[in-house]
Structure formats: C-alpha cells, structure tokens
Amino acid sequence: MTPAWIFPEFSPVGVDLAGAEAVARYDHNQGTDPERDNALLDRLGVGPGTRLVDLACGTGSLVVEAARRGADVHGVDVGEEMLAFTRRRAADAGVDVSLHHAGFLSYELTGPPADVVTTRSALHQLPEFWKQAALLRIAGYVHAGGLLYVWDLMFSFPPAEYAEQVQRMIDELGRPDGGADGAGFTRADFEAHVREEFSTYSWILEGLIERAGFTVEEAAFPRPTHGEFVCRRR
C-alpha cells in the first residue's frame, strides 16, 4: 500500500498532457529528432544488450532509437496517453520496448540492474525532497559503474539574476501564445513552468545527484536555464 504522504506523481503539475491530442501536440512542440537521440545514445555507449531505463519517456523517441540498436529498453511514464503514443511509435518502427505505467517514486526494475538510466525534461516535476528520493531509487537499480543522464530546465545563473534570466528565457524561447507553426513551446507554457513546476539551481541538483551515490562526470549548460549531467554510479 502506498503511504498517504507520498508525493502524487500521477497528478503531474504544469501543462495538462492527459489527452491524445495534447500528447501529439507535445511531441510536435518538443521537436522530436532521431539524429539528436542517436547522438546521445552514442555518448552513453548504448548498443546491443544494453539495459536502458528511460524515466518519463514521453512520446518514446529515445526508447525507440535505443531499441533499433538492440538494447533492452524500458520506458516509464505516469501518462497513459504518453505510453500509448510510444507503443504506436515502436510498432511503426518494428521494435519491441517494455513500457511501464509508473513514475520516479513508484517504478521498480525487475531482473538485472540497468546499465543506463536517462531522464529528460522531467525531474522538474518533483520538489527537491522528492528529487532526492527519486535519485536514491534510481541508484538502487543501476549497477556500480552504470550511467545516469539528466537533462532539464535548470538554473546555472547567479541567483540574484533570477528575474532577468527567467524573463529572457521566456522572451527568447517562448513562441507567441496561440501560434501553431513550428516546434517549440509557448510563452504561457514557460510561464506556467516557472510558476508551478519545480526546476531548481544546477548546483542544488548536482548536490542531490552526488548524495544519491553518483559522481558527476560531465556537466554542460548550453543556456543559463538549461543543462545536463552525465553521472556514474559509485
């Protein structure tokens, strides 16, 4: 039985992605790019037999590309419509993926430990306390020496610059509300993210990762509001 005090991860904050139409729009807006997915899989050494868990797999672009390589792929998401979209994408590609209706705090990997765990644009769904819990759970099913990859909206700017940096992100990345052309999210999407979700400073997230039993081997911040960590299980 799930304790009453557990964070309600099946009721995600921010933009509502419960419907099929919303999920299809999300897939379009995020700019799915198999080339970019494969570049990441190359970096993480994913190939035949690699056991990969993609947490908050979304519409499944990464898990499908990993499955094309012969990896043992597990896609995890709290959204049933996300999993349905991923299932169709995998069927269209002619590959097999294992899909799990679960989240950071409820997923349990059975069988051998994972070689690689990825999570992109998702850890911000959890407040700091629950980010730490999620990272500890991940560390429990990644073998020693295995990899964790995190990409997210995170803040590497000096805290005193928060107002101007957030506004700059919204002005530069947010397409006009109601604009339907091209990929990308609207100004209102970014505003809701900052207001309602739980993106945090990169140095806080790095500390949580280290305390969960990982060593950060690579960190990159292509924008002051976005970044990635490549981490190895100690």
Rank of each mutant, 00 (worst) to 15 (best):
L17R: 13
D37Y: 14
P158E: 13
V76W: 08
A183E: 14
R88D: 10
H124R: 06
V53R: 01
Y26I: 07
R25T: 15
G184A: 05
S11P: 00
F104M: 05
D96F: 08
E81A: 14
R69D: 12
V150N: 00
A212V: 11
G14N: 12
W151V: 09
P113N: 12
T200Y: 01
A71T: 12
E191I: 15
M154H: 01
Y201A: 09
G213H: 12
S106N: 08
A91C: 01
E35A: 15
A139M: 08
R87F: 03
E217C: 09
F10S: 03
R43T: 15
A18C: 04
A220C: 03
G75K: 10
P176H: 10
I204L: 07
A90E: 08
G45W: 10
R36V: 13
V73H: 01
G146H: 10
G79K: 06
G70E: 13
A219K: 09
E108G: 05
D115P: 02
D115T: 11
E80H: 08
G19D: 14
S156L: 03
D177Q: 06
G174V: 11
D16P: 09
V97M: 04
E108C: 03
H101A: 07
E210G: 00
A90S: 07
Q165H: 09
F10D: 10
G184N: 09
A188E: 14
L41A: 02
